[in-house]
């Protein structure tokens, strides 16, 4: 009888933990899962024949809009490359001067990007320009429904079975 009571207690607390977790995760659906923003213009200043190189990583959610605006000197050319880390998706864009393009990474994850800006050899004096990025990335909360409900329902099952184990009290 004592063991049964203890088992009921364990089931009660495990169930409570699962239900609380499930409900909390379910409420994440109603929070904004957005992110992103725009980085300030990255200034580029190069002598003729020089180039700069930048490599970095970005984490994007399920749905991403990435807009890049270049305002470079016409004699400056750029090459932008983006690759999914651990995937096959790649994006490449090269051009010169003023340009606008947008990139839509297909799936959530970490992306590697590289920038190469080169100033033409025959330019006279220092060349200036800047690059600006606007990122809008947000996730679909769908996965939280299943995870949250999974936790909550299994927790409820534990709670109910703890009631069953506890049995009926004897009435004097």
């Amino acid at each position: 009888m004592h063991g049964r009571k203890n088992a009921a207690k364990v089931l009660w607390f495990v169930g409570l933990f699962l239900v609380v977790t499930g409900v909390a995760i379910f409420t994440w659906l109603f929070q904004s899962l957005g992110g992103g923003g725009s980085s300030g213009p990255i200034l580029v200043e190069l002598n003729p024949g020089e180039s700069i190189y930048r490599r970095g990583y970005s984490y994007y959610r399920d749905i991403t809009d990435l807009t890049i605006v270049t305002a470079l000197h016409p004699q400056m050319s750029y090459n932008f490359n983006m690759t999914k880390v651990g995937g096959t998706w790649t994006f490449n864009k090269s051009g010169a001067g003023h340009d606008t393009f947008s990139v839509k990474p297909p799936i959530r994850g970490v992306y590697e990007w590289t920038w190469l800006v080169h100033a033409g050899n025959d330019a006279s004096g220092k060349l200036k320009g800047n690059v600006m990025e606007t990122v809008n990335t947000w996730g679909s909360g769908e996965s939280f429904v299943f995870i949250g409900l999974g936790f909550a329902i299994s927790g409820l099952a534990f709670l109910l079975s703890s009631f069953l184990l506890r049995g009926v009290k004897r009435v004097p």
Binding site: V20, I25, E50, I52, Y53, Y57
Partner: peptide
């Protein structure tokens, strides 16, 4: 307390990070 902490920390942030810069 567990519920409230979990409830309030569901928003994730993602970021960009530059790891290599080569100027002349």
């Amino acid at each position: 307390i567990y519920f409230l902490v979990l409830f309030s920390s569901g928003t994730f942030t993602s970021e960009s990070w530059t790891v290599e810069v080569k100027y002349p």
